[in-house]
């Protein structure tokens, strides 16, 4: 099902969907953009035409969240878990790279012991994707199976074409949401051909490439090569921005905050780029910077693929390149990993 809607009617469409869903849209807070609750009126967020600074994972895996609180009464400590959030959510305008990252987090948080905080927030979520018409020059999603108009991880894919938006139903849930809304009209063949050329134009703008051929094996081949990693890490200042804003990073710290009469256990995003992350009383296995940079790169391009059926946990969103204060570039590192050593002579 392919529908179109005038830009002026988007507000009414969201009002309709807001009856059943909690709507999240890109929003601006100074220089930072992130997904936030829609205020119910304003569609000014449509002018945020580039991917958000904070990845969409923050809706399901907040920067900081309460795990439980505890209080001591006459019978001892009592624990209390925060109530569930309203579970049905609709993310309006998620980019394909961030949607693909969510699919990876889904697996990591579900495998083995389930993570109840992430999975509870993620349950019953509808993803309405948005084609990136003006990708950044740091984007390299096309090398990793994605693209500015890629629809495989969303329920509805939306593309701005002139002053209209064309919405393609991808999943059954998406189709159902497109049906029976009077603000939509059916897209004509001319609309669909315009859609195709807009998407092709977007695709052509992604020029940065990363060579992922045999990359997992290639990384393992250099895993003990200190010189390689030291060279790769030379500029890094260990600020952690690359991991903090990475849509596929999911590591966290757990700590307790004491407030009067009660304690609150919280978790917060952490970073493998901080020496304290692995510090133990007597030693630190990743005290040296090159080991931490190796951890970051190898986790995405080797360890995660080893653990999860070959999936590289990098979507090519480019945030780690454009937000880095010293222009560290993961594509340069990956592209400098030597080609696979072939032992066969034929």
């Amino acid at each position: 099902m392919v529908k179109k809607i005038k830009q002026a009617d988007i507000g009414k469409l969201l009002e309709r969907w807001a009856k059943d869903y909690r709507i999240f849209v890109p929003s601006r807070d100074g220089e930072i953009t992130r997904f936030d609750r829609w205020d119910g009126k304003d569609t000014g967020f449509l002018s945020i035409y580039r991917n958000t600074v904070v990845p969409a994972k923050s809706v399901f895996f907040p920067v900081k969240e309460e795990m439980f609180s505890y209080k001591k009464d006459s019978t001892g400590y009592q624990l209390k878990v925060p109530g569930p959030s309203m579970s049905k959510k609709l993310l309006f305008g998620i980019r394909p790279c961030d949607a693909s990252a969510l699919a990876m987090l889904d697996v990591a948080f579900k495998e083995g012991y389930e993570d109840p905080y992430y999975l509870e927030k993620r349950r019953d979520t509808v993803l309405v994707g948005m084609t990136c018409l003006r990708p950044y020059d740091s984007c390299f999603c096309t090398s990793l199976g994605g693209g500015p108009g890629e629809s495989k991880n969303v329920d509805i894919m939306m593309t701005q074409v002139g002053d209209e938006y064309i919405l393609e139903g991808i999943t059954q849930k998406g189709e159902e949401l497109l049906a029976g809304v009077e603000y939509f009209t059916d897209a004509s063949e001319a609309d669909i051909s315009r859609l195709r050329s807009v998407k092709e134009g977007a695709l052509k703008q992604i020029t940065r490439k990363v060579n992922v051929k045999d990359i997992t094996q290639r990384i393992y081949d250099v895993i003990e090569n200190k010189e390689f990693w030291e060279t790769s890490a030379i500029k890094c200042v260990s600020c952690g921005v690359c991991t903090f804003f990475c849509p596929t990073c999911y590591c966290f710290d757990i700590s307790d905050e004491k407030e009067k009469g009660t304690g609150i256990r919280k978790r917060a995003w952490d970073s493998c780029q901080f020496p304290v992350y692995t510090k133990m009383p007597a030693e630190n296995p990743r005290e040296e910077k090159w080991r931490r940079v190796r951890q970051k790169v190898a986790h995405k391009y080797a360890y995660f693929p080893t653990l999860y059926g070959g999936t590289i946990s990098c979507t090519g969103c480019g945030r780690c390149i454009r937000l880095c204060p010293v222009s560290w570039d993961i594509t340069a590192v990956i592209n400098s990993v030597p080609e696979k050593v072939t032992t066969e002579s034929k």
């Binding site: 083995g112 590591c251 966290f252 710290d253 493998c272 133990m280 296995p285 986790h299 653990l307």
Partner: peptide, 24 residues
């Protein structure tokens, strides 16, 4: 082996040696 751990269940990310998680 001993490693710094937080979650104990293979999520929080710090106790790995390559793809091996010391906690699980």
């Amino acid at each position: 082996l001993e490693k710094r751990m937080k979650c104990g269940i293979g999520k929080c990310g710090r106790c790995n040696i390559g793809p091996l998680f010391v906690c699980k």
